[in-house]
């Protein structure tokens, strides 16, 4: 298994390099360094000299991939791509285009993101699985029919509606929590509660329905019939046999997103004005801050690869048939 993991980590390098190149190309197809400079300096009263100065100060005066004027290795190293992107492999994020330390920003902003994302995922998972198991327990009854109908209705409603509706109902009418914002330390819980609640409610329809189909697929299998033939009561059949086997596909979806919790949710964070990494990314895209965008894309890719690795490892824990080799 160690060999397998090492090999997968080696595969990650070319993958990350490719992602870097792609992000770089996509970004500079849309923007030129001149556009970036004008964006930062403001559209009015910009002289070509101040644009050149902005570019020189931040290293955007170099060619993109190939420096024909320079000699020797400088042909490769004297480019924007080399200087801006390759430091990422050592997790040197450098400075953003307005001069802030990106590494420090990330270190600070990941905590609010985690405070929202982790409880949303874990409590949400628990709620989804419980609802799904209940639906399966009452299968072929009216309870199941209306439960599924409700799930479909719930998943048909847009997330934005849940967010605005929740803010209006809980924040404004009932005044149980603040509508948006964030606080430091333990006081943050008052600001965290509403986004978490809304995240769970918005997800329960699709989640429960998806898990229900996974359970239903298992519940008609031969080994479940064997469990019933032993005389086990239905709840024990569901928990000891069905749930254990259905966990295998559930894990695929869940473990892979675990590392990505760091990067937060783009929509929720901007609606609730949470200073997390999600809103950080959105702001950077709006301001054409290439330094931050490439850092977040790189971080996201690394975390995703990590998530896939974790999924593989978790398979060996829940499914004895799987061996990494």
């Amino acid at each position: 298994m160690i060999g397998y993991l090492l090999r997968r980590l080696l595969y990650a390098f070319p993958l990350l390099l490719g992602i870097n190149v792609l992000t770089f190309i996509l970004f500079f197809v849309v923007n030129t360094p001149d556009d970036m400079a004008r964006m930062h300096l403001g559209q009015k009263h910009v002289t070509p000299e101040s644009v050149e100065k902005w570019k020189r100060e931040r290293g955007y005066d170099l060619p993109l991939f190939w420096n024909a004027k320079a000699g020797g290795t400088e042909k490769v190293t004297g480019t924007i791509f080399y200087q801006k992107s390759l430091g990422l492999f050592l997790f040197r994020f450098g400075r953003s285009d307005d001069g802030r330390d990106i590494g420090a920003d990330i270190g600070q902003r990941m905590w609010p993101s985690l405070a929202i994302a982790v409880p949303s995922l874990l409590v949400g998972l628990l709620v989804d699985i419980s609802v799904a198991l209940l639906l399966v327990f009452f299968r072929l009854t009216y309870l199941e029919f209306w439960g599924v109908a409700l799930c479909v209705a719930a998943m048909s409603v847009s997330t934005l509606f849940y967010i605005i509706g929740g803010q209006y109902l809980v924040g404004k009418l009932l005044q149980l929590t603040p509508i948006s914002g964030y606080d430091t330390g333990l006081n943050a819980w008052r600001f965290v509660a509403l986004p978490v609640l809304i995240g769970i409610v918005a997800g329960v329809g699709s989640g429960a329905r998806w898990y229900r189909t996974l359970f239903l697929e298992e519940v008609e299998k031969d080994y479940v019939r064997t469990a019933r033939a032993k005389g086990l009561p239905e709840p024990r059949v569901l928990f000891a046999h069905v749930l254990r086997n259905a966990l295998i596909p559930i894990l695929t979806g869940v473990v892979v997103v675990l590392p990505l919790l760091f990067t937060g949710s783009l929509i929720t964070e901007s609606f609730f004005a949470i200073p997390g990494l999600g809103s950080y990314t959105i702001d950077a895209i709006n301001q054409q801050d290439f330094a931050i965008v490439r850092s977040m894309v790189f971080l996201g890719s690394v975390l995703y690869i990590l998530g896939l690795l974790l999924t593989d490892i978790s398979y060996t824990l829940v499914d004895p048939r799987v061996r990494l080799g």
Binding site: D222, Y223, A240, H241, R321
Partner: peptide
């Protein structure tokens, strides 16, 4: 007691 045709699918694979 009952035994079924296919012993592979009739036993729980993860226990």
């Amino acid at each position: 007691g009952i035994i079924f045709q296919d012993p592979m699918s009739s036993l729980n694979p993860v226990l």
